[in-house]
Amino acid sequence: MKGNAYTLIYALLLGTACALLLTAASEFTKPYRVANAEAEETFNILKVLGIPFEEGTDAAGLLAISKENVKEKKSGDVTLYEYALAGGKVIAVALPFEGQGLWGPIKGFLALEPDMRTIKGVTFYQQEETPGLGGEISTESFTTLFSGKSIINELGQPGISIKAGAGNDVNGVDVISGATMTCDKVQEMINEAVVKIVDTE
């Protein structure tokens, strides 16, 4: 009959075999996955900065457009992405933000006008929020609410607010009904990023 030692060895061997197989697969697909993630990020930087590109452009094409138009700029420990015309005129600056959402990590970019005060747009490119509720943050009907808002409130303090009825404030965006937790966390992570750049100026 099969004893304890046999069971242990069997479990050990099976576990090792599965782990080896998965490690190999993960190593093999890693360059592709990294490239996909990079392309996704580039796509979102271009989109949020309002840089025109044809729909369906492949990863290499996106990178080329980004190289031509977008300059990475360090500001403290924050990397800013600056969209400037050939003459040096700055059109917009994108600020990355990330943090923990309700269910998983959220990542996105906040694009600012050259005055570094007014929001040009916002995009969320990674989120696992509740579909239909928190998941609505990546829909256009929510992201367009940010355009034209200020990242400084009436009292001159940095930060935006995502609250019920805040839609008329200079720095306010109306909350998504049923997604208060997600909105609170999004507000927190955007403000964390905003504070950093306002401080460094």
């Binding site: 998965l22 697969a25 697909t29």
Partner: peptide
């Protein structure tokens, strides 16, 4: 446990494949 380990391995393989390609 052995069944789940085997199933999980195949699922993750497929998931990695989708993520890459």
């Amino acid at each position: 446990i052995a069944e789940v380990a085997i199933i999980a391995t195949f699922v993750i393989l497929f998931d990695q494949f989708l993520r890459a390609f």
